[in-house]
Amino acid sequence: MTRRTLLTIVVMVLVGLLPPLLYWSGNAFYLDLATRLVILAIAATSLNLILGYGGMVSFGHAAFVGLGAYAVGIPAHHWLYGGMDAIATTSGYVQIALAVGVAGFFALLTGLVCLRTTGVYFIMITMAFAQMAYYLILSIEEYGGDDGLVIDTRSEFNWISLDDPIQLFFLAYVSLVIAMLIVRMIVNSRFGMVLQGAKGNPERMATLGFNVYVFRLVAYVISGAMAGYAGALLGNFTTFISPEMMDWSRSGELMFMVILGGASTSVGPVIGAVVFIVLEEFLSHFTIYWHLPFGLMLMAVVLFARGGFVGMLTKRKDR
């Protein structure tokens, strides 16, 4: 077993066991924290597919998460207050399908445009499209605009109740494991080889006969849809959603998790999410100005430590 596999197993076991144990021993707070962590890790894992393995520096990933959350909130809102009968429902299956579908479709539409470009253009355009989604939601008064939307009824499934925090946690945890396995499967497949090849040398890939644009677009849509799913979970977790979820600083945080944890490794985004949540919690206990040390740390990591945590923990052995 390589060090990296060992690290992945240890981290995943800890993330899966520790929070429920704490919860059952009377520390409910930590379960909340862990649920948020796991959901963010799903979003970060989806980002890792395009950023880490595909080399697409998307700075708009939070938009997919936000759209996924609104795909839960909007049907629930109409179910309670009427209107839009076609989508008014609290059925979790419909909402999840909607979340994945809407986020995937948004990824397709924006991807068609932004994947025509590379480099800085791509970074800025993904940012701009995310901002477009942000302003779109903001402009619809019915869904609360700036004030956000309260999700009165969580998604309903017949075999699980998301109102029970421990069940919600396990749903999120199992989802994370599946998301990691899916990304791993994609990455190792023929498709994934092309995707990674296109990250390293797109011109060569074109010369070999691969239409790099289409491969990237497919990966982008998969990634967006997956982030939409994470958003649906996040909506169910917070029960309050607002355009702020799509703010570009949220996208930046997801990037931070992927890069800090270790891009193009399975467990990297999870470790990144752990570090992010722990820092946020720990630092904000000491000072309301926790963004200052956080920002300084981010700069220090970029300036001085490359390869992220997975890189540091598994140095020299693998690779």
Binding site: S189, R190, F191, M193, G209, F215, V218
Partner: peptide
């Protein structure tokens, strides 16, 4: 090997195959 295998893969039908590990 991956570099060469990718080139072989290019001539072996389409590559929108997601399930089996290429290696």
């Amino acid at each position: 090997l991956d570099n060469i295998a990718l080139a072989v893969q290019a001539g072996d039908g389409h590559s929108f195959r997601f399930l089996r590990p290429a290696r």
